[in-house]
Amino acid sequence: MVAASSKWGFFKLVDHGVPSEIVENMKARLNEMFDLPMEEKLKGARSATMPLGYCATNPDYGKNLPWAEILQLLQSPQQVLGFAKKAWTNGRLKSVIHRAVVNKEKSRLSIAYFLSPALSTIIDSPPELLKDPNTDPPINRKYVPFTWADFRKELLIQKRVIGKTALDRYLISP
C-alpha cells in the first residue's frame, strides 16, 4: 500500500476479509436510498449547520440523472485520532485528483471511506518520517504544521485550482 500510495496515490484493496454478503448488502441499501424520490432524499440533506447527509450536484435534474449524489456520514473522531499520527507523511504519499467518468445512461456506485481527524488536530510529520535509513542527515521538513480546521478552510477556498492543492499553502519552500 505504501509503494502504491507513493507512486500513484491510489490502490484497490482485494482479499480484505470483509465477507461478500456485507459488501453486497451495503450496495443494496445504498441503491435503495439513491432510488428514493428526490423529495425523500432531500429530507436528509446537508446544511450549513450539519455538513453531513445527502446532497446532489443537480437536485432539479428531472428525467436526467444527477451528475453525482452523495451520502456523507461521520466516523468517531476518537477512531481517527490514533490513525492520524500513515497519515502525515511529509510528502512521501501522494493524493490523486478524483477523475470519475460519468455515464448518461447508467449510474455508477462508488463507496469511499475517508478518515478525518478532529478539527483541532495538528498536522505535522512525526520525527520518524523525517529520517531516511539510507542517509545520515535528517530529511528536510516540507510543510509547516497546521490544524485540520485550517486545511479544510483552504480546501473550501481553493476549489480544486488546476495544478495547485490546498496543501501548497503550507509548503516551506516550493
Rank of each mutant, 00 (worst) to 15 (best):
G17V: 10
P19E: 11
I22D: 12
I22M: 11
I22G: 02
I22P: 02
M26A: 15
M26W: 07
E32L: 10
M33W: 12
F34R: 07
F34T: 01
D35P: 01
L36Q: 11
L36A: 10
M38W: 00
E39C: 06
K41V: 01
K41F: 00
K43H: 01
K43M: 03
R46L: 09
R46K: 15
R46P: 00
S47H: 03
A48T: 08
M50N: 15
G53E: 02
A56H: 01
T57V: 05
D60E: 12
Y61S: 14
Y61L: 02
N64W: 06
E69K: 02
E69Y: 01
L71K: 01
L71W: 15
L74H: 07
Q75S: 10
S76K: 10
P77T: 01
L81G: 07
L81P: 00
F83S: 08
F83I: 12
K85P: 00
K86C: 13
W88Q: 12
W88H: 10
W88S: 10
T89K: 02
T89P: 03
N90Q: 06
L93C: 08
S95Q: 14
R99P: 04
R99W: 06
A100W: 02
A100D: 13
V101K: 13
V102P: 05
V102Q: 14
K104V: 10
K104E: 14
S107M: 13
R108C: 08
R108A: 10
L109C: 03
S110T: 12
S110D: 15
S110W: 14
I111P: 05
A112D: 08
Y113N: 12
Y113A: 10
L119I: 05
I123A: 11
P126R: 04
P127L: 01
P127S: 04
E128N: 14
L129H: 13
L130V: 05
L130Y: 01
L130K: 05
D136K: 15
P138G: 04
